[in-house]
Each structure stands twice: as C-alpha cells, then as structure tokens.
Nucleic acid binder design. Structure first.
Lengths: 205, 205
DNA sequence: GTTAGCATGTAAGGAGTTACATGATTTT
DNA sequence: AAAATCATGTAACTCCTTACATGCTAAC
C-alpha cells in the first residue's frame, strides 16, 4: 500500500528527518537538491503531504511559531515515530527500483541517515545497473556502426562517456566506503535515541 | 492541434525519414538511440503511430513485402510529403522546449536532416539553458554550503561536474559548426527533391 | 512441446505539470 | 500603488508505463 511517488515520498521524509519544515520551503529544498531537469510543483507536493499526513507518517508541528513570523499562516510538518521508521525501512529495503536515475539521487542524498551496508548495496546496485546499460549500448553501437551519421554517433559517444564517468565516480565512492567503513547515524529499525539529532552533518573524510 | 508527445513524434518522424519501418523495429531503434533511462513501450508507440496516420503524416507502405518475410503480417510505415514538411518545421521552429534534456537529444540525433542555422540555434539554446542551471545551482550551493553533509555535497558536486562537462561538449560542437559551416540535407520548407535519399548518412568531417 | 522472439494492439492507472483560485506581506 | 515573494491548495490534463489480450514462427 501507499506506493505513491516513492521518490518524492522519500525526499520529503528525508528532508523532514533533518528538520521540520513547511511546504513552501520543502519545495525549494527539493528543487535545490534534485532539481536537475524540471522543478517540483505544488500540485505534486501538497497532495503528497496530505497523503503522508493521512498515513500518520508526518504531523503538523506547533502552529505557535507560525503566526509570529508574520505573513500567512503556514503549516510546519515534522516526522512522527512511524515516519522515521518508514524512512529507515525505505532506505534499508532499497530494492532494484533504487538503482534508477531518479531514485538513486534521492537515496544518495540521505546516505548520512543510513548504515554502511545499505550505502554499499545501493552504490553497487547502481553501478551494476549502469554497467548493464553500457554493455547493451556498446553492442548495439558495434552492430550499427557504419549505418549512422556523424551526429548520431557523436550523441551515442557522449552518452557512453557520461555513463562511464558515473561508473568511475561510483567506484571511487565504493572504495572510500570500503576503506573508512564508518556508520553515521546507526539505527535501522529499533531505537529512536538519535531523535534529537540536529540538522548538522556527520563528516565522512 | 496535435501537441501530443512532441519528442516521440519527432523521433518517429525522424527515423521514418531515414527509411520506412514497422512499429516493432521502430521501437528498437528509438530505444537504442534515446533509451538512456527507461525504454519506450508499445502502449506509447502504437497510439502515436495511429495518430500520425490519422493526421496524414505517415502512410502504410506496400503490404506486399510484408507477407514474404514470414511471421506475422507487419505494417510498414513511411513518411508522406506532409510528414516530411512537418518534420522539417518541427526541426526548424525548435522553440525553447527543444533545450530540454529529452527534446535536445532527439533534435540532435537528426541534425543531419536540417540546416546549419537550425543546428546552431539548438546548440546555443541548449548551452545557455545549461548555463542558467549552473548559475542557479552555484548560488544555491554557496548559500547553504556549511549546512549540508558530505554526501549531499558530493551529489551536488557531481551534478555540477556533469553539467559543466556537457557545456564544454556543446562549446566544442559549436566551434566545429562555426568552422565547417556545411549544410547536409538543405531544404527547410519548400522542395521535396531529396525524397529518394537512402538511409546512408551524409558525412560531416 | 515449450520457451523465446516477432508483431500488434487496448485499458487502466501512476506520476507529474500547468493553470487556476486565493490572499497576505515586503520591497521598489 | 505595483510588483515580487511568501504561502496553500484544487482541477484538468499530458505523457507514459504496466499489464493484459492475441497469435504466429523459430529454436531448443
């Protein structure tokens, strides 16, 4: 149940995990983080928030701080215990759908909130996904080599290059993870002790 | 009218411009060319072909060759004169929507079928689109610098790198176009003399 | 004889955008 | 006083995928 916009759901949960926020700000943060390509619209975000509210994964925080700030009354959302658990599950389960272009970015952005094994699984999954792609395109390219014009060839070459570059990037990240195998936030399912943790980041290197 | 899936429409028209084909093959070619990310499904392609048929932009070629090949009867489509004209218009008009990730790739793949001015306009439009993106992300990154964790930062950095790389690529292509300003297929609207042109490519360099 | 590949199509639904509707506050 | 920014929400619509429905031929 609740398979709705898995990527957006994770993004919202992940951002609220760091600190409570209202919709307008959430949208800006989402766009800043993942807005390569098109931007997230209110028509997507607000219905998503409603749905998360109904599911009990988020709640409205104190409306007190709201009126103070001036402007229109704004609704500040924060994660519930269920929400935190669900977020952790989404990160830890991280099935093949997490190797997709879109999904991978969102998962990666919240790596600091998971354990090392999960990070490794996602990085390696993503890499083998890209390597499959590479293999498919390379053979397709070899078969049609002569029949395509220079522009088409150039497009293919550039695409291939980009994917190869991402594979190298992933390999470096995997090596770093392997070397300094350090967990950043610990818990995967059980405790909620790190609840009061601020938005301040954990270092990697 | 007929604003349906501009990118797919152009891709189909462009591929049929090179040589007549049936749906199944068309899908494979589209996936090979643009299938970075997910693949094109029949549920998209066949309705699109029907619509192009209704619009008179494509027709069924001789069903003769069809039965010969064995297997199931297949429908070979080819461009009509209207279709060729429409394709040329779509390439030549090439508004801001052509600077999008998706659209740009499709337009680029058919550069051999347009004139040098159009190519230049698309390349430069794409480049300035990416440069805007770069500027927005750079300022956003400068403002939030300290507040993000190492993983988020790494994601931003890699994204920025990729876009910068594409800008350099475009700049090189623009320089090449500028140097060897050579038209490949000529006509933009009027004549249809190059109708019998085979799938064989025109060289650029 | 069953699996894999060729070939065409439809129905339902997911994921997201644009445009609309509303209104307060701050800056120019 | 106008324009920009903050802030929330809905309705309609687009594009596309998944899953279904059908059936033939080649290979194992």
């Amino acid at each position: 149940m609740a398979k709705r916009g898995a990527a957006l759901e994770l993004a919202v949960l992940g951002l609220l995990h760091e600190s409570p926020m209202h919709g307008y700000e959430l949208r800006k943060r989402v766009n800043a983080l993942f807005g390569w390509g098109r931007v997230l619209s209110y028509g997507t975000l607000y219905p998503c928030l409603k749905q998360l509210l109904r599911a009990g994964l988020i709640t409205q925080a104190d409306t007190e701080s709201t009126v103070k700030t001036g402007r229109r009354a704004r609704i500040v959302y924060k994660l519930t215990a269920d929400g935190k658990e669900h977020f952790a599950d989404l990160m830890a389960e991280a099935g093949p759908s997490a190797w997709d272009d879109e999904s991978f970015g969102v998962h990666f952005a919240f790596f600091a909130q998971t354990d090392a094994e999960t990070r490794m699984r996602i990085l390696e999954g993503r890499r083998s996904r890209l390597e499959e792609r590479l293999a498919r395109v390379r053979t397709a390219l070899a078969r049609t080599r002569e029949r395509v014009d220079a522009y088409t060839l150039e497009l293919q070459r550039h695409g291939l290059d980009s994917v190869e570059r991402e594979v190298r990037w992933l390999t470096e990240l995997i090596d770093v993870e392997r070397a300094g195998g350090r967990t950043t936030t610990s818990d995967t399912t059980s405790d909620t002790t790190s609840a009061e943790a601020p938005a301040q980041p954990q270092e990697i290197e």
